[in-house]
Design a protein around this nucleic acid. Structure first.
Length: 877
RNA sequence: GGGUGAUUAGCUCAGUUGGCUAGAGCACCUCGUUUACACCGAGGGUGUCGGGGGUUCGAGUCCCUCAUCACCCACCA
């Protein structure tokens, strides 16, 4: 088949993907005798289209999976998508707002219908885009966080935790988002700096500061540090009457160490219902916690004349009233404070006390390694005991720091999109309430009781994603059989038995807490296994200017689709891993994509050339290396293959890729193929082409498979199904001859280039290397000829070769002598360094022998080179 | 307040356990259209590896310290 001059990715990629998918190469087989290898794909949120971040994880995981297949493993890459409760909810609510309506107006059913349509469209787009990226995922095992089987796992987990006392319902202060009308977990809260006003008011004998006067109506506890001498006269529990916003109130003195005596006056009043810190203080001393603000952010009747006002409106009026009462002491307009906002949806968080479901992270009821532990301590153990490795390792410190600050996990949400909480309530005619917690809804209908009603709340998205590695491996049909217990189900699920724990979790460091830690938590608890052995954390992709890609700056967002349309998926894949290290963010740059588009084209043209040279003379005979170049390239190939395997085994994507790039472009294309033009070794060329296609395939699956499909019969089938073979044996010493040839070529090129001499001739006197390989050298160095001759004094000698010279007239040699002198000085410096090193007693005593030997060898070589340069300089001076 | 990362060529960044004269891509300059490729080939790098100190025979790499930038966690009412 005749290939066109340039590789046009978009002409082939779709067909190639279809070919793979049809063939079933991506489908894993748990009954296979091969070694199993598994990766759970982090399910992308169904919120629109794939981003560059998704493109990155698809690339990294696809490389690992294809590499595992090449190593002869049964590889499962299980794909899926996430219903993404909160983010999706935020999008739908925004849509509704733009249409001038809201969720209450359309009702739960209609809301869910709209949401399903939206996520359905998103899912179709995203799954299509994953294929466009070349993801070799097992689509027969596609999962969705809201699948029935996964939903069962969610309920099983909830119920088990409930029965173990790990899940409880309680009135606690939570991060309430009045905009989305739900609470969110601590990890979803973001703090942004904001300039505000800080007021100081007189409060009886004290002065208290606040940035939020609107919460202060019922502040009846005045708190100070127990050791603060300024207030030693006041005792804990003392009461006094003070004049306040709506008249006099009775204040109670509380002594608590949470107060910083150095901040402000060292005295504060507290609002337990609307501040996390205040709530904790109130808990410690068993104080009243009165709600001041309602769930929509408006003041309650407790605010008297201000009731019903939004907090923003009320603030200035309250200040005004306090000023009129003469209670305002000071106003500071330059106060900088941190406002809590919901990361999803950006609503301002108003802490509220609410009846919510929590996961207790401190209760020691989790069996792990034969010990009763808390969820928290299990989390610590698996990393400390190296059951799970974090890559890069430095994230362990971040991880432990997060655990140290971990509080009970609030898992209930008031949004409608998500897994329903498996709890039902009913009352009887006497008003007595019953609660039922179960994997399936209760069915009994007793006399005198009303219908069971399910808890209206949904679960935090991360509660279901936490089960991802194993809930996806459960046999989906068996899961419908509720007579089986979960442990029986796990035992009878072939996928779970074959693929769990998975080998590696590859994801961004930004969801280490949200997701990775929670998978560890839920999976160890439910299955007694770790979810994965390694965690590889990649960095984020930022805009070209180094800032985050953000929807508020649409020009900063790069769509993978657009890049693929222009440059092809392979070019994008390689650009994303080139010169990138784990855990470190990278800035997007188009330059890398272009470079890799060119690399694809290079591979294409190597194939084009080799296919032309071989024509219809393809043979399947084992190639026999004959020339030094043959031995050299075979040896280099073996080195590259070993190096790439080792790097990928250690998740060194960037380094593996660099080795591949160097081998294909520099070694094979620039040196070997050029050298082979003198006398092509056809079987070896065929072998080399097939080898690089296999080696490059995990990185650039499309272009390599496209070429593979053009190979003649007998070599075809699917590249995606090929395994790595043992490299051919090469004679390393014969290969070294080629390195000598390279040195001669490089120098000949350099001299002819710098003197601008064309069609120079290279002569030698009885040099066996040149006698044997003259034509190759002539071709590579663009020389007219390499011929034996008698010594001619006025010509330029090659360094280190006393009897090899270029037929460049002596006159031109005088121009060259300056460069030779520079070289001489450099060489003298090198020799001086090496001599000093060897003269150093300490060095000779401490350095290992091989290093010393190496130094000696370098020195002797450097001396020969210097002598050669010197001789040449002398001839012209 | 606590922590992490970054600082290496004009730009964007690699550099594995310390060990040859520190690398890549892009950009730039010179030459070249030798029939695989101009998305190409050949040649071209004087980098105080952020500053200072230390450990070592030997430091871009390990330790201390300072500076700048980015980020994470906690959060002062």
């Amino acid at each position: 088949m005749k290939l066109p001059k340039q590789y046009e990715a978009k002409l082939y990629e779709a067909d190639i993907y279809a070919l793979w998918e049809k063939s079933g190469v991506f489908t894993a087989d748990p009954s296979s005798q091969k070694k199993h290898y598994a990766i759970s794909m982090p399910p992308p949120n169904e919120t629109g289209t794939l981003s560059l971040g998704h493109a990155l994880f698809i690339t990294l995981q696809d490389i690992l999976i294809r590499h595992a297949r090449q190593q002869g493993k049964d590889a499962l890459w299980l794909p899926g998508t996430d219903h993404a409760a909160l983010p999706v909810n935020a999008i739908i609510e925004r849509q509704l707002m733009e249409e001038g309506t809201n969720k209450h107006a359309i009702g739960r059913e209609e809301f869910l219908r709209r949401t399903r349509t939206f996520v359905g469209n998103s899912r179709d787009t995203m799954l299509k885009q994953m294929r466009i990226m070349g993801a070799s995922a097992d689509w027969t095992r596609l999962r969705y966080t809201l699948d029935d089987a996964l939903n069962r796992c969610v309920n099983e987990t909830f119920v088990k935790m409930y029965n173990d006392g790990l899940i409880y319902r309680g009135n606690r202060i939570v991060n309430w988002d009045p905009q989305l009308e739900t609470n969110v977990s601590d990890d979803e809260v973001m703090y942004v700096e904001e300039k505000g006003t800080f007021y100081t008011f007189r409060y009886g004998p004290f002065e208290i500061g606040t940035a939020r006067p609107e919460t202060k109506f019922r502040d009846k506890y005045v708190v100070m540090h127990p050791q603060d001498k300024r207030y030693a006269q006041y005792k804990h529990g003392d009461t006094l009457e003070v004049e306040w916003i709506n008249g006099p109130i009775i204040a109670t003195i509380i002594k608590d160490e949470a107060v910083d005596p150095k901040f402000g006056t060292g005295v504060m009043t507290i609002t337990p219902a609307h501040s996390l810190v205040d709530f904790d203080i109130a808990e410690r001393h068993n104080l009243d916690k009165e709600q001041i603000i309602d769930l929509h952010g408006n003041l309650l009747p407790i605010a008297g004349e201000f009731a019903g006002m939004s907090i923003d409106k009320a603030r200035s009026q309250i200040v005004k009233k306090l000023t009129e009462k003469g209670l305002l002491v000071n106003v500071d307009n330059k106060y900088v404070h941190h406002v809590a906002i919901n990361e999803r949806g950006r609503g301002v968080i108003e802490p509220q006390i609410r009846l919510q479901w929590f996961v207790d992270v401190n209760k020691p009821v989790v069996m792990w390694k034969g010990e009763n532990q808390s969820l928290k301590t299990v989390l610590q153990h698996v990393i400390r005991d190296e059951d799970i490795n974090l890559i890069p390792k430095r994230f362990e410190k971040v991880y432990f720091n997060w655990i140290d600050n971990l509080r009970d996990w609030c898992i209930s949400r008031q949004i409608w999109w998500g897994h329903r909480i498996p709890v039902w309530y009913r009352t009887n005619t006497d008003g007595r309430e019953e609660t039922y917690v179960g994997v399936q809804p209760p069915t009994d209908k007793n006399e005198g009781w009303h219908e069971w009603k399910q808890d209206p709340d949904t679960l935090d998205t991360w509660f279901s994603s936490a089960l991802w590695t194993w809930s996806t491996l459960i046999d989906q049909d068996l899961a419908a059989d509720y007579t089986l217990s979960l442990s029986e189900l796990l035992k009878r699920s072939p996928d779970f038995q074959a693929y769990h724990p998975t080998n590696v979790m590859e994801t961004g460091w930004d969801i280490l807490f949200f997701w990775v830690a929670r998978m560890v938590l839920a999976t160890t608890y439910m299955t007694g296994q770790i979810p994965f052995k390694d965690v590889y954390l990649h960095g984020l992709i930022r805009a070209e200017d180094g800032k985050k890609m953000s929807k508020s700056r649409p020009e900063s967002i790069i769509e993978p689709q657009e890049i693929i349309d222009h440059y092809g998926a392979d070019a994008l894949r390689m650009a994303l891993i080139m010169n990138v290290s784990p855990g470190n963010d990278q800035n997007w740059g188009r330059g890398k994509v272009e470079a890799n588009r060119n690399f694809c084209n290079k591979i294409w043209n190597i194939a084009r050339y080799i296919e032309t040279v071989l024509g219809n003379r393809w043979s399947t005979t084992t190639p026999i290396p004959t020339t030094p170049a043959d031995h050299w390239i075979v040896y280099q190939l073996a080195l590259a293959q070993q190096g790439i395997n080792k790097d990928l085994d250690n998740y060194k994507f960037s380094e593996a890729y660099a080795k591949l790039y160097r081998f294909i472009w520099n070694d094979l294309a620039d040196w070997y193929i050029e050298a082979s033009k003198v006398s092509p070794n056809r079987p070896l060329l065929a072998h080399l082409l097939q080898s690089i296609l296999v080696l490059a395939h995990p990185f650039a699956p499309f272009v390599t498979e496209t070429i593979w499909q053009t190979l003649p019969p007998g070599t075809n089938s699917l590249l995606a199904a090929q395994v790595l073979h043992k490299p051919l044996k090469a004679d390393k010493d014969k290969g070294v001859l080629f390195e000598k040839i390279q040195k001669i070529v490089v120098e000949a090129r350099l001299i002819t280039k710098s003197l601008n001499v064309r069609n120079a001739k290279l002569h030698h006197k009885n040099d066996p290397l040149l006698a044997a390989h003259g034509s190759v050298i002539a071709h590579l160095a663009h020389l007219e000829s390499v011929t034996p001759s008698e010594e001619a004094f006025e010509y330029i000698h090659l360094t280190g070769h006393e009897h090899v010279w270029l037929n460049i007239p002596k006159a031109k040699g005088y121009t060259f002598v300056r460069e030779l002198q520079v070289k001489q000085t450099e060489q003298e410096k090198v020799i001086q360094n090496l001599e000093n090193r060897l003269a150093n007693k300490a060095y000779m005593e401490h350095a290992p022998n091989n290093i010393i030997e190496e130094t000696k060898k370098q020195l002797s070589e450097a001396r020969i080179t210097l002598e050669s340069i010197k001789a040449e300089v002398n001839r012209f001076s």
